[in-house]
Design a protein around this nucleic acid. Structure first.
Length: 336
DNA sequence: AAAAACTGCAACCGCCAGATA
DNA sequence: CTATCTGGCGGTTGCAGTTTT
């Protein structure tokens, strides 16, 4: 196989890089750029394998590395993305400019993992470790890090998957976090969809930028994945709504007051629940499924399946993106 | 003060997929 | 089509520095 291949049997150096070696590598890459790594050691005068040179450059010598401690925002992004992507460090690193997969992996293993466990959250599943169910209302505080403000009860920066998970576990009008997997993990749910845009979800939800699609982070994501920073307008989205019989809603616009329980269509009180439901004309609506497809980098379609509800006339209901408040983002979704 | 335990992180290892001969 | 090469990735190790006993 290709591993450790090469005719040169001369002894290669291992272990930590010396400043002299770093200098040689930097000089070479600066002058000739990154190309065939297997030939770099020979040309740069290094007693290392090409793989080692590559790693040293990518993880340490590259000039665009940020280094230093992770910011709270970076930490939140890692947590959100890990929840969706799992240990796909390279993919996570792609969303964090100046950070390497190795750095993020180390940060996760040495810090975030422990932090989550301290909060009673299983770092693998991102679900509460404690047995049985835990009510979210008020009591969810015990799973939060009050100091860092992560998982606040207002849900404004709660990881999207947690929030969505909550949406799946509604019981007798009370919201529950379930430690069982009977409803499937959010990760499974999202990954089972045709295309998923996790960063979009994370950012969309987090309230980093209420205009959602315009942040640099997302622009970079789209540049990386779709070769363009031109971001779609929310106005172009075409959600479809149907009841579980499959018939389309006839509403001109339908409000799913994301992340909050609404006591009326225009009033978003009861902010503590953080699940996706609403009350309209005295009836409670809940989301049982969220299907997020991505077409050319945008959410092309949301599909919300309602249960036990026949919604015939809800023309005065609107839809808001996660994290926004009614009035801040009116009429971004239109019925098709 | 010394030894042990812990922590953070750089680097290595083995596997894999895609490219190329 | 097969074998080989290469780069990329995630898991793991080893070591230096720090903290605790």
């Amino acid at each position: 196989m290709g591993r450790h291949s090469g005719s040169v049997k001369q002894k290669l150096r291992k272990g930590l890089w010396s400043p002299e070696e770093d200098e040689k590598l930097v000089k070479y890459i600066t002058r000739f750029g990154v190309g065939c790594w297997s030939s770099v050691p020979q040309h740069a005068g290094l007693q290392r394998c090409g793989k080692s040179c590559r790693l040293r450059w990518i993880n340490y010598l590259r000039p665009d590395l940020k280094r230093g401690t992770f910011s709270q925002q970076e930490e939140n992004i890692i947590l959100d993305l890990h929840q969706v992507l799992g240990n796909r460090w390279a993919q996570i690193a792609a969303q964090l400019p100046g950070r390497t997969d190795n750095e993020i992996k180390n940060f996760w293993n040495s810090c975030l993992k422990k932090k989550l466990m301290k909060q009673g959250i299983d770092p693998n599943t991102h679900k509460p470790i404690t047995g049985g169910n835990a009510y979210v209302n008020d009591k969810n505080v015990e799973f939060m890090d009050k100091e860092s403000g992560y998982y606040p009860s207002s849900s404004s920066s709660m990881p999207v998957a947690v929030e969505l998970e909550r949406a799946f576990d509604i019981n007798n009008g009370g919201l529950m976090l379930s430690s069982s997997m009977e409803n499937g993990s959010i990760r499974d749910t999202l990954l089972s969809k045709s295309v998923c845009d996790p960063l979009l979800l994370a950012e969309y939800h987090s309230g980093i930028d209420l205009t959602g699609y315009n942040s640099n982070l997302l622009a970079q994501y789209h540049q990386t994945n779709y070769g363009t920073t031109s971001l779609p307008s929310l106005d172009h989205q075409n959600p479809e709504f149907s009841d579980h019989s499959g018939s389309k809603m006839t509403t001109s616009s339908l409000l799913i007051n994301e992340g909050r329980e609404s006591s009326s269509t225009t009033n978003s009180s009861n902010m503590n629940t953080g699940f996706q439901s609403m009350t309209f004309e005295g009836e409670m609506f809940q989301l049982n499924d969220v299907n997020v497809k991505s077409e050319q980098g945008c959410v092309g379609q949301w599909q919300h399946h309602m249960h036990d509800v026949q919604l015939n006339n809800a023309s005065d209901v609107n839809i808001y993106p996660m994290g926004s408040l009614p009035g801040e983002y009116p009429d971004v979704f239109h019925q098709i």
